[in-house]
Nucleic acid binder design. Sequence first.
DNA 1: AGTGTAAATGAGGACGGTTTTCATTTATAT
DNA 2: ATATAAATGAAAACCGTCCTCATTTACACT
Lengths: 141, 141
Amino acid sequence: MSAERQDLRKAGLKVTLPRLKVLEILEDAELRHMSAEDVYKALLETGEEIGLATVYRVLTQFEGAGLVSRLSIDGGHAVFELEDGAHHDHLLCVKCNQIEEFVDEVIEQRQRAIAAEKGFEMTEHSLYIYGICKRCQAENN
Amino acid sequence: MSAERQDLRKAGLKVTLPRLKVLEILEDAELRHMSAEDVYKALLETGEEIGLATVYRVLTQFEGAGLVSRLSIDGGHAVFELEDGAHHDHLLCVKCNQIEEFVDEVIEQRQRAIAAEKGFEMTEHSLYIYGICKRCQAENN
DNA sequence: AGTGTAAATGAGGACGGTTTTCATTTATAT
DNA sequence: ATATAAATGAAAACCGTCCTCATTTACACT
Ligand SMILES: [Mn+2]
Ligand SMILES: [Mn+2]
Ligand SMILES: [Zn+2]
Ligand SMILES: [Zn+2]
């Protein structure tokens, strides 16, 4: 039994072809961060005829099961990535849409402190740094 | 000439009734953070028959003119607030949708440092802390 | 004040990403 | 194998936001 089948079973999800294929796409993709549309197109390229609605459904279920996490990018569409258990935040290039990741314990700590100061019971946070990546600076000058 | 008229003139915008009324709503509202729909409903309550499309247009123009700023809340609709020149970030209650503001220089600094480390030319950032506010903790236990 | 002109408005439709509906197919327990 | 609940695909619905275009309005110049 493949690792993907086990992952789905553990997540309490029936092992179906769409779920297996979506999981494979996410694992094999060169891009770590993919929109539902990206996943859908990648499926078409491998010859799988899976509907876009199913892709959305499966990704949402995967999120619920903790297999993937969803980024809500400023004003646009959602982006999904395989969940690896370790929290991180994102840098987004506004020119080429490339996404980089980072972790900063100082920021994490300050966030907890701010929530505490305000009497908030923090459930999560979302931090995006927007800018122009190194490559786009060089190219576009 | 009212302060609002001057503000509009300074922003290079013709002084029209919809723009004056939207500005008044934002200035007089008990809530500092309002969606386009909120503004639209507030206008209806004061008896002004201003179309929702116009509200969106005016808010977008105000944003362009630096009179208001727009928050893009996780997965939902945009929220607008009067621009006061000083950057700040937000805490959002996931129960009652109340919004609080904060400024943290340590976080601001770390963000700049991270962008620099990655070779990014930072243009902006968005930081939201989600949680349960003090009041909702007390009520909902 | 009256007039011309460009800009702004309102109504309704378009739009894009996402979700829902419902008839059909499929996975899994027995 | 069979039964049954769950999953799927196609198409339509949804929702916040933006656009189109005919009409109205603000403002500059008499
Ligand atoms: Mn990531
Ligand atoms: Mn604010
Ligand atoms: Zn780039
Ligand atoms: Zn609350």
